[in-house]
Amino acid sequence: MQFFLNITLGGIATGMIVAAVALGLVLIFRATNIVNFAQGAMAMMTTYIAYAVLHQGSGYWLAFVAALATGLLFGALTQVVLIRPLQGKSPLNAIIVTFGFLIFLEGVAGAIWGSQTRTYPAPFSEAGQKIGNTQIAFSPFDVFVVLAVLALMILMLVLFRGTDLGLRMRAVAFAPETARLLGVRVRPLLTLGWALSAAAGVLAALLVVPTSSLTPNFMDVILIYGFTAAVVGGLDSPVGALVGGLATGLSLAYVGGYLGGSLEPMAALALVIVSLMIRPEGLFARPAPRRV
């Protein structure tokens, strides 16, 4: 029973981190109609910068803020240089470019920092809490993860549902021509979308890195699970990303715990296939008629 409980709690903690990655993907998809495969790698680069800041003697939170700020800038810059020229082209191009950028960044990180593993601290204790006499697998850091991811989701909901800016961003993403005709300034909004999404990716990386370790490819698999979560929940829905993240985290935990660790990636694949067979646009996306 304690085994089941611990696995479940572990699954929830993993799921929240996966959800953070998924939220970043959803944000960029909503704002620019693209899936950014380089999101994890961009966050990885930023985390190395945070690591350097941390080792300058600055505290955790200064490094945290520095990472988020760098992430915003990096996202905006990427959009201007790499993504803007692809506007109006086939979505295939954007996929290949972001994927290529992922490879490129991992190579560059390897060239600069090598492939040694570095440990990155957590802001709160990672020791599980005691309830009565048993220690359960949920630490203050896990609480921080849950709160941070919930905050991110709520911010996104407010942005897209409650603000004029969010509405314009969505208009720009899905009907750029119409938006332009209506007087929306398209370019800065697209850039802003990328900046915000990159920052969300950085948050996810900072939540992952204490339990994992800092290497050039530490975000690879997390990105794929984040993608799983986003697809399950619907690439368009922040709530879907959260639920998808939890579903992914728990599936991985149960499959790993009861069937075997090697099956985890296949379990994620099966989850995607099954959920797409049931609802191709994701569980939380509104069914959208296709327009020619």
Binding site: Q2, F3, N6, V18, S212, V221, G257
Partner: peptide
């Protein structure tokens, strides 16, 4: 299994089983 996949889900199940 020595794969990066295990990084994400962690080793929760293995460690929990040993502890139990």
């Amino acid at each position: 299994v020595a794969s990066t996949a295990a990084y994400v889900a962690g080793l929760q199940s293995q460690v929990a089983a040993l502890q139990a």
